[in-house]
Design a binder for these strands. Structure first.
Length: 929
RNA sequence: GGGCGCUUAGCUCAGUCGGUCCAGAGCGCCUGCCUUACAAGCAGGAGGUCGCUGGUUCGAAUCCAGCAGCGCCCACCA
């Protein structure tokens, strides 16, 4: 067998073509350069023309908010999308990924308002137009940076198609859909109790008011009955009701319970349950509302439950949704007591005007207290709604707003899920989606903001005519007056996002793009916006385009810190993806995220230790780079034999790795198909690292030193497998693979003169699957590992070759001609198929198929010394073991010591006993078989 | 109040149809190696009653029931 010698040291050895490749992948230099190559090659662009030749595959990006730069959640989301897009592109699809950003109404306005506040100003100081300019000034650079960041992590979007939800085209889409829905009576204006954020000063949709638990009080208030209704109260008390009584001045009162006493100023009635016998006599009576002196009626309503509080409820229709509904059913008046100009609100008695909510509460309570009308209070845990953008307590408030009628829109979207036209991964989200759709409520879309799409509605100041036109009107369509005023409000930011899958392709209006690229295929996003966005896109898609906007929805997990908290700016536990890209490279970021996140599973990363958090990706990329570097250097400049021509000369390891490659390629496809990106990453890591690098490369090193057919065949396989591995890994780690691709010498089909990004995805070949080779090689692997293990056990250094006796089993013949292999991988000098001589000293092991290995150790190690060492160690252990056993045999110890101490003692003894047994076996093997 | 999810090695997590990938990976740890691809590495190890209790089955991490702990979503009990 050829002994090892330095490459290029004599004629006949491989050409010395030292390529000066650095030992680590220099991501800082390479990524930018590779990105330019991709862009110069127009690799990301996809046109309707292309799609005629190759079937399209379309993803529209969940447009990041222009409020701020990207966080790790975006890193995960966009890596997932890019993996899908790159994979499909290599499969030969016209892969189109449409990028863009979202104007994010409230969120963005808040950010800019906070900045103004720092300057001591409010938006009113600037006025509407100047404020809007100010927002644009913030949004434009941020939007640019977001797109640059997406590029930095390797996203292969068609950048020429980048859209913004507030750009001209999308504004047209918003206008068109608003007008259409209005014409179809699916948009209406009405006075309802909506969620009002008193900090953002705008209405919110139901979804934008998030429930949060809060400790508060349940107050019990006494409401006196109006003169003339005493008999009703007396009858009630006679019937045994506890919540009716008499004040010192003789007036009768009822006790009502409320968590928000200040709203009593807006009460217009009191309600009891219709089936509540205690209060049957009260219905129809009149209460004199304290502090205001208003006379309000007592009504019966089925929403009032007898078993909560006193079973009597105050009704404040303008400030509580359920009270509003009671009023609607019973005809109670609606009285708004919280207005922006509260100081002039005639509904509120003078002392309580112009107060904040919390001040109003204490003022009302002390006033009631003074009149002896507070019966008491209980601690109470309740859920209060908060603004999803600023966390302020949301106020239910009667107000005139625009709504979308959702029932009809939801029907086809619900159907789409039930028929499987759209599917969710993980599957469990299907039910969540359907339940929401089933009892969907109307969508409040008007916002009292200045940043967003202005509501396209004009009110005639002369005749009151309301017009909702496609073009801005000059005069009233009804009376001709030019005194038109546009609705001051803007639309919910999601009102533009929900059109995204078709608005980005130029809707309204026919276009080739729309025709070609709608519907798309997959959507990847966070489950938080399932209702806000995903569900609504499906509704608008079905309604406008008659088809769901995508077939598959992948809802990925959340990026959290080590404590499981969601990463957020306010907690300061975020990780800046750009910092990771800078330090470890985009590939390291991507691999870590992809490999770390199961389907829909959260991913935990330590923001305080980026080094550890991204080690999996960084290590992998480095390994990939080095294996690639080794192959490139080994191949040299000589032309590489096409694989088909080498086929006749394949060695066992060649057949093995080629077979494993087919297996991994097939699995990778399956995993990606099911959105199991982590599964793909794992399969490919196993193939590349544990099989190709750890075993195959080591197996062929000797052949590479030759100069002849053996080397040629090895080079051919080496090159082929690396090339395929690089293709398979490209969607996950695009930069380092593209770099290696460019370094690989020209392949048989010459297609690596093209960029890897557009190279074909490997097709598993049935012919290269070789189960026999896999079995044999697996056996060899086991043998090598056992020999290494024995060497380690008996401290036989790697500098020393051992000989090996092999008997039994069914595969010993596989060893024929594997001397070089065994020497390299296990430092085995010679192999003999024979039983050890009687009395031979050595170590033995049995493989799974029954093959017996015997490693003669005499002469290799000092047997006597090793035996003595073992004896000493055994004796040392025996001392401890005996003592331990003695304690366990002692009834006093077992009886009195705490049970966990006894338990630990048992474990200790067991573990000692095991070790002693092992060492005794070792010593026995040294005595000779 | 409803609904959903999670609990597997010290840590973070895979585990598809119940059975030779079923007890796995990465990180960490121990031991030995700077072996000319890679110390961000190589080789050899240690480490887990798969949350608990029952049940179904020839067979359960996997299916069923109950329990415990954690987390998420939805909901107008004032």
């Amino acid at each position: 067998m050829t002994s090892r010698r330095p490459a290029g040291s004599e004629p006949g050895s491989p050409p010395d073509h030292h390529l000066e490749l650095p030992a680590t992948f220099n991501h800082r230099g390479a990524e930018e350069r590779i990105r330019r190559l991709w862009e110069a090659g127009d690799s990301f662009a996809a046109s309707a023309q292309d799609a005629k030749k190759r079937e399209p595959y379309v993803i529209v990006i969940p447009p990041p908010n222009v409020t701020a730069v990207l966080h790790m959640g975006h890193g995960l989301n966009n890596t997932i999308q890019d993996v899908l897009i790159r994979w499909r592109r290599m499969q030969g699809r016209t892969a189109l990924w449409v990028p863009g950003t979202d104007h994010a109404g409230i969120a963005t306005q808040n950010v800019v308002e906070r900045r103004l506040a720092a300057e001591g100003k409010t938006r009113y100081d600037l006025g509407r137009e100047a404020f809007a300019r100010r927002v644009w000034d913030h949004v434009e650079p941020t939007g640019e940076r977001i797109l640059a960041q997406l590029k930095a992590i390797g996203c292969s979007c068609d950048w020429n198609r980048a859209r913004f939800t507030l750009d001209e085209g999308l504004t047209r889409s918003v206008r068109e859909i608003f007008v259409r829905l209005y014409e179809d009576d699916l948009i209406y204006r009405g006075r309802y109790v909506i969620n009002w954020c008193p900090r953002c000063l705008t209405a919110l949709s139901n979804e934008e008011a998030e429930g949060s638990e809060r400790k508060g009080h349940l107050w019990h208030l006494r409401y006196p009955l109006a003169p003339g209704h005493e008999t009703a109260a007396a009858r009630t008390q006679a019937a045994g009701a506890q919540s009716v009584g008499r004040l010192p001045d003789g007036r009768w009162y009822l006790v009502v319970s409320t968590t928000r006493p200040e709203t009593m100023l807006g009460d217009t009635g009191v309600a009891v349950g219709p089936g509540d016998d205690r209060y049957r006599g009260l219905v129809g009576a009149v209460v004199e509302l304290p502090l205001t002196g208003r006379k309000v009626p007592i009504v019966a309503d089925e929403s009032v439950r007898a078993d909560f509080g006193t079973g009597i409820v105050k009704v404040t229709p303008a400030h509580d949704l359920s009270d509003f509904e009671i009023a609607a059913r019973t005809g109670l008046e609606v009285l708004d007591i919280m207005t922006e100009r509260a100081t002039t609100n005639d509904n509120v008695p003078q002392p309580f005007r112009g107060l904040r909510r919390s001040d109003a509460r204490s003022a009302v309570l002390s006033a009631l207290e003074a009149e002896g009308l507070v019966a008491g209070r209980d601690a109470h845990l309740h859920t209060v709604p908060r603004c999803y953008r600023c966390d302020a307590l949301v106020e239910p408030r009667l107000s005139e707003q625009w709504f979308v009628r959702m029932k009809a829109l939801a029907q086809p979207a619900l159907e789409a899920s039930r028929t499987g036209a759209v599917t969710f991964a993980p599957l469990r989200w299907t039910r969540v989606y359907e339940r929401w759709m089933e009892d969907i409520r109307d969508w409040c879309i008007s916002r009292q903001l200045w940043w967003g799409h202005r509501i396209p509605v004009w009110y005639c100041q002369d005749c009151g005519h309301v017009s909702v036109p496609r073009e801005d009107p000059e005069s009233c369509a009804s009376c001709g007056s030019t005194l038109l005023e546009q609705d001051p409000d803007v639309l919910d930011t999601w009102f533009s996002s929900w059109l995204w899958p078709f608005s980005v392709f130029g809707w309204p209006g026919e276009s080739e793009d729309l025709e070609t690229f709608y519907p798309g295929h997959a959507l990847s996003t966070a489950p938080e916006i399932l209702f806000f966005w995903v569900a609504r896109m499906i509704m608008s898609g079905c309604h406008v385009m008659g088809e769901v906007p995508f077939q598959r929805v992948y809802l990925h997990g959340t990026v959290r810190d080590t404590q499981g908290r969601k990463m957020s700016k306010s907690l300061g536990n975020g990780i800046d993806p750009m910092e990771v890209v800078e330090r470890y490279g985009a590939d390291a970021l991507r691999f870590t995220l992809v490999a770390g996140a199961g389907v829909g599973a959260d991913i935990r990363l330590d923001p305080k230790n980026l080094e550890a958090a991204f080690a999996p990706g960084r290590n992998f990329v480095n390994k990939l780079w080095n294996a690639g570097r080794f192959v490139v250097m080994s191949l040299g400049k000589d032309p590489v034999l096409p694989l088909e021509e080498a086929a006749g000369e394949f060695q066992l390891e060649d057949r093995w790795i080629l077979s494993r490659l087919q297996f991994a390629a097939r699995r990778a496809d399956e995993e990606l198909e099911a959105f199991r990106m982590h599964g793909a990453a794992e399969v490919l890591r196993e193939l590349f690292w544990s099989e190709f690098a750890d075993w195959y490369l080591e197996s062929v090193k000797d052949r590479l030193q030759e100069n002849g057919p053996g080397r040629k065949v090895a080079c051919s396989v080496l090159r082929h497998v690396l090339e395929e591995v690089i293709r398979l890994l490209h969607p996950i780690v695009p930069f380092v693979t593209e770099e290696l691709w460019s370094l690989l010498p020209g392949s048989e089909d010459g297609d690596n003169r093209r960029l890897l990004i557009v190279a074909p995805w490997p097709e598993p070949s049935r012919e290269l699957v070789d189960e026999e080779a896999e079995r044999r090689f697996k056996w060899l692997q086991e043998l090598v590992v056992r020999v290494r293990s024995l060497r380690k056990e008996y401290r036989v250094g790697e500098g020393q070759e051992v000989s090996l006796l092999v008997t039994g089993g069914s595969r010993a013949h596989v060893l024929k001609g594997r001397e070089a292999f065994l020497r390299r991988l296990a430092r085995v000098g010679s192999v003999e198929a024979s039983a050890p001589a009687p009395g031979a000293v050595g170590a033995s092991a049995v493989l799974q198929d029954g093959t017996e290995l015997f490693l003669p150790l005499e002469g290799v190690i000092d047997v006597n010394r090793e035996r003595n060492r073992l004896t000493r160690e055994i004796e040392r252990l025996m001392v401890g073991l005996k003592r331990s056993r003695a304690r366990l045999a002692n009834d006093k110890f077992v009886g009195r010591a705490p049970s966990d101490v006894v338990e630990r003692e048992r474990e200790k003894a067991d573990s000692w006993a095991r070790r002693v047994r092992k060492l005794q076996e070792k010593r026995a093997s040294l005595e000779g078989a």
